[in-house]
């Protein structure tokens, strides 16, 4: 726990639709209760740009599809005591991993040549390089808690966070499943 006895939480958004973060916000008024118990120290939901040295809980939405995703997953693993895979993309690759049935070149051709009429070209600047295969988060770093669902319901996220705040390891299969 951090110095002020609140649980510090960092979240990251890799290759996902942001739906899991939206579902987090869907906790509605429970967010106010949560704000008394946790500090969100790094997240697409807050301004902080730097991940603190030591964070209690890291939450990752999305699969690992690009160099940047890989870097973020490793960064959170390094600095977070406990890492949560939130949502099907993080847990099993989900829709982003459907491209794994094809070679990366074929995926690029489909997206940036075959279906493009104006200046078809493969983007190289200002975008992270895609990995040959999309992997779930635990395919690249160790994960402690898995919360499947697309997205996991606000109730499921509330249950998982409440259990962690109380110092218990949650069993997400009680409240969510693949595709839920």
């Amino acid at each position: 726990m951090s110095a002020n006895d609140r649980v510090s939480v960092a979240t990251a958004w890799l290759d996902g639709c942001s739906g899991c973060h939206m579902s987090f916000l869907d906790m509605d008024e429970r967010l106010i209760a949560l704000a008394d118990k946790i500090d969100i120290v790094y997240s697409p939901l807050v301004d902080a740009k730097e991940l603190p040295e030591q964070v209690d809980v890291g939450i990752i939405e999305g699969s690992v599809s690009s160099e940047e995703d890989l870097h973020k997953a490793q960064l959170l693993r390094k600095h977070c005591r406990l890492l949560i895979s939130l949502g099907d993309c993080a847990v099993n690759g989900n829709v982003p991993a459907m491209r794994n049935q094809f070679k990366l070149d074929a995926v690029f051709d489909r997206a940036y040549r075959e279906n493009v009429s104006f200046q078809p070209q493969r983007p190289t600047q200002g975008v992270p390089a895609l990995l040959e295969r999309v992997r779930p988060v635990h395919g690249v770093v160790a994960v402690d808690v898995f919360v499947p669902g697309c997205p996991p319901s606000a109730d499921a996220i509330w249950y998982v966070l409440s259990e962690l705040i109380e110092g218990r390891i949650p069993d997400p299969s009680q409240v969510t499943k693949f595709g839920a």
Partner: peptide, 25 residues
């Protein structure tokens, strides 16, 4: 890919995974 499967929510394999505590592979 349960999230986009026509049987999502009505699938014996999906339910089985949940009952057996398979939260990741």
């Amino acid at each position: 890919v349960c999230s986009v499967c026509v049987s999502n929510g009505h699938c014996e394999l999906q339910t089985l995974a949940q009952r057996c505590g398979v939260d990741h592979v």
